[in-house]
Design a protein around this nucleic acid. Structure first.
Lengths: 217, 217, 217, 217
DNA sequence: TATGAATGAGGCTTCATTCAT
DNA sequence: AATGAATGAAGCCTCATTCAT
């Protein structure tokens, strides 16, 4: 057995690291849920890909539903955490909105976990969001930022009046979300590969155009 | 006695109607898949809500996967069947496009089964569409119709050049699909009820505006 | 392997006999519950001693609690079924009461399953009896029969007045029940073997004397 | 997060009081065993209701069985400790016996823990009593006291001859024990609430009458 | 064409207990 | 003397599916 590699990261050694253990479980569980849905995910499969055992999943998360809820919250947390970085105040309303849309497009693209968890959650009629205290709070700023930009634009006469920020957010979300959520079926049905950088760049540009033209005065 | 049926309440007895039985099973199965997803759906639950027995499901459809595929195909068939009625040739390109978008918006709204089956299919990475000979054929006309309208519009100078019909279809789909697919989570997260007729009318109008402005010369 | 006996009663052959299967499961489950209590009983152990599989237990009884409830009801049914045979009308009140007490003593002795199931039920605060529609009905006649005898005795001047039939039943039950329920601990603590026929006969006679003297005018 | 305790609510911290800790554990464990039986009791549940941690239960008692045995012994100890107070020597045999029965009735009533632990022990065929060195010793005096009274009564001609003290004890125990052990099922089946003071007083009086008449010359 | 009975495999969860500090 | 983290074994239950009639 000369070829056996030395296990640098030995697996089952009682390592006292609760946060690490929980993080590890969350990551693996996210992958499993995202790939197979809530009902399709297997606790055994999750456990097998973990540094720890099935028992620890129950130790830290109680049951499958609560593990799923934790992943859902984590998905929201991840995508919202990234957003804070954007500084749009010093840009013109048009530039700010453009940047926000581009950013949203990219962000959804870079966070398929988020998109897919939300898909799954919708399959389950959003019943887990109801149980979460956290998720609501994470979404406050998004619309506020958007409203600020929009109102500045209206004031400066570059955006037309009469649009609600939340509706604008709805449209941006729709386009950016669909790009990720429905790529598999769209690709297969229309036999058009949307995965290339060029194709994505074009779509992004079109989405920006859609939104800019929609609000244009 | 979960699985033991009370003996007094006999089912609607032995109806010699294969097509009717299959239709009945399909309807019930669709409801179950649409509400719980592929993995979440239960053959027992489907059978219980059927006029016939669990055995017949296997007799007619073989196994759960093939029953699901049948429902997926049925969902595509239903939504595409409805579309043939539209006659847009005699309208101006603008009116035709407007009508097509409005129609698509309404159509998705009226066929949540379709939307949800496609969501589920995307959760499963579109793997069942691959196995279907039927679905591909059903989608040919949609883009063709759209292309015709668009080209007429370009010719007449009312639409700008350089847009591919399939991209246009993508954008229309995105907005109309998202409206149904993500309503649960959007409603709950932003605490805004999108189910009212007024709200839907406004969204539809906005979607039309989005598309019209996007293609406007 | 010359000594292998031919299996006359082959085990796992798909025999379509629902009533037999249910009866078989009930018998085995009763033994297990009676020996180990509700929480101590093991579904796997029950299944292993059955002619059928664990799956069938769930098929017919749903879950462990309902299987337990079924056994509890069965235990009541068994003990009450036997009772109907007694014909006490033509006896003098004294003879009738004597016979009833003797019978109850014997009957509890012959139905340890009943006694032990009731013990277990009391450990669980009688919570399963609450859920049973059947058990209540099974106990109507017992006290009625006793009351009839007692009232005849009072009328004839051989029993004293002022005793309620249900109290009388309580006392008879207490003595006859305890004889079975507490034999293990009583035997061990006082190092007196109560299992012999002679000992049981003496106890029975004493219990009869207790009751007869209690009601004597 | 079923097993993960909230970190803000620290337990009553490190009390250096071994005896107190053991007493605390015993009390909580007794409650749990008495309410759920041996198999139904949960170490986690016991630990959660303790001032200390699960680890300490194992530190002091070794395992669940030994904790249970300790509770069983404790239950016997409690009920026997109370008994020593009775001074019956100076009373007439009748009065002494009456007082002893009344006392036993009350004592069982006041020590449901004892009654229920004995029930549980009988469910387990008295197997733990076998392992206890202590319990045997605790029961010596009871029958001796009773015998003394009985013999005095026979001598004085107020009690009939031929009754063994241990049998007398058996009858007294049966009635007083059953009153506590079977109250739940008896109450529910005969829909007669036996918990009231009046009802208990009546039963006590009847039990006294039963015994007095039984031994009466 | 139809059905109730039956099932192996595998799912989720919980148990008493031990380790590392 | 005390603790939070960790665990193997085993528990209960459910799944899609097939058999016997």
């Amino acid at each position: 057995m000369a070829e056996v590699k030395p296990k640098t990261k030995t697996k089952k050694t009682r390592q006292q690291d609760p946060e690490g253990t929980k993080r590890n479980i969350t990551e693996v569980a996210m992958r499993e849920f995202v790939n197979r849905g809530l009902s399709g995910a297997r606790i055994d499969e999750i456990a097998a890909n973990t540094n720890t055992s099935k028992r620890m999943i129950y130790y830290y998360f109680g049951d499958k539903d609560r593990l799923y809820l934790h992943c859902l919250e984590e998905a929201y947390r991840e995508i919202r955490d990234g957003e804070t970085a954007l500084k749009l105040d010093h840009l013109t309303p048009k530039d700010a909105l453009k940047k926000l849309v581009e950013y949203t497009f990219e962000h959804n693209n870079n966070h398929p976990n988020f998109v897919r968890m939300v898909m799954i959650e919708n399959i389950h009629h959003g019943s887990f969001i109801d149980r979460s205290d956290i998720i609501q709070k994470l979404n406050a700023t998004v619309v506020n930022d958007l409203e600020e930009i929009y109102l500045r634009g209206v004031e400066e006469g570059v955006f037309r009046k009469g649009i609600e920020a939340i509706d604008l957010h709805w449209h941006i979300s729709a386009l950016c979300f669909f790009n990720v959520s429905n790529r598999d079926t769209f690709t297969k049905i229309f036999e058009k590969n949307l995965n290339s950088d060029a194709e994505q760049a074009k779509l992004c540009q079109q989405v920006v155009a859609m939104i800019m033209r929609f609000v244009a005065a």
